[in-house]
């Protein structure tokens, strides 16, 4: 059996996440992925913003930086740019990354700075009590959308791809092995690497949307996620309401800190 303890700060347990929340599943997948890559704990930094997802760093025994709402990416950019030898992992949520931190999200992707970003997407603001987020599906209910959400949701992964991220994947906590694999690939990639991870929030989202039972939310993930290979074979009608998972983009692009290193060499050579 895998020993998680060497990466866990047990002093901070029990964790704050609700029963049925998927964030702990991501935490375990992340630890297995880090361990598989033999990343030094002393040289790894985890940066987060605000929200349920952003409490992850507190439980991981590496250098951890819990910042302000939406700003994990700028802090992480400062860490990585100043000290490129550090491995920098960013943990954020749908509200943190695509609402209040939306500008940082697109620009970090455009810059293609070597950060591994795990975006926990639970379709809702969980920590503050279930308000509508930029990924809440149209028609769903939230504490600030009591009559149903009239706004269309962001395609968060698509946003990162079009902004310039070199690696973008989508995973979910039902398919745990795939989730771990996507995280590992993102950690290995030299460039801005995003893994959007669908994770259930029975407390703040499920309760308002006829899925209060955590099992129902897990079943939803099982029944509505489609791997990319299979997705290609589906008709537009068959794709309706389904979510594509797997590696969505994997390209080679100039990475920011490597480009800056070249710039320094060029200037110093003059």
């Amino acid at each position: 059996m895998f020993n998680y303890l060497k990466f866990i700060r047990t002093r901070n347990f029990p964790h704050i996440w609700c029963p049925g929340c998927g964030d702990g599943i991501i935490l375990k997948a992340l630890i297995r992925a880090i361990d598989g890559l033999d990343i030094s704990r002393d040289e790894a930094v985890m940066v987060s913003g605000i929200g349920c997802s952003s409490r992850t760093p507190g439980y991981v025994d590496i250098n951890t930086l819990h910042t302000t709402h939406g700003r994990a990416l700028p802090f992480a950019t400062g860490v990585k740019h100043a000290s490129p030898d550090l491995n920098v992992i960013v943990v954020t949520g749908d509200g943190d990354a695509t609402a209040i931190g939306g500008n940082h999200y697109i620009h970090a992707a455009r810059r293609n700075i070597n950060l591994t970003v795990l975006l926990y997407n639970n379709y809702i603001y969980g920590m503050t009590g279930g308000q509508c987020s930029p990924t809440t599906p149209r028609g769903d209910r939230a504490s600030t959308a009591p009559y149903g959400n009239i706004e269309p949701p962001f395609n968060t992964a698509g946003l990162a791809i079009s902004a310039g991220a070199s690696f973008v994947a989508r995973a979910d906590v039902y398919n745990v092995k795939r989730c771990e694999k996507m995280i590992r690939q993102a950690l290995e990639k030299d460039g801005f690497s995003l893994v959007e991870i669908l994770t259930p929030c029975p407390t703040a989202y499920g309760r308002r949307n006829r899925m209060a039972n955590p099992v129902k939310l897990m079943e939803w993930l099982r029944d509505n996620t489609v791997p990319v290979q299979k997705w290609e074979k589906l008709s537009p009608e068959e794709r309706e309401g389904k979510v594509r998972v797997g590696v969505l983009a994997d390209t080679e692009k100039p990475e920011f800190t490597a480009e800056y290193r070249k710039l320094i060499e060029r200037v110093q050579g003059e």
Binding site: V47, L65, T67, T68, R71, L73, P74, F75, A76, T77, G78, V79, K80, H81, A82, S83, L86, H104
Partner: peptide, 9 residues
């Protein structure tokens, strides 16, 4: 934010 992140290193 970047200024603070850099300083922590």
């Amino acid at each position: 934010g970047a200024t603070i992140g850099a300083s922590l290193t």
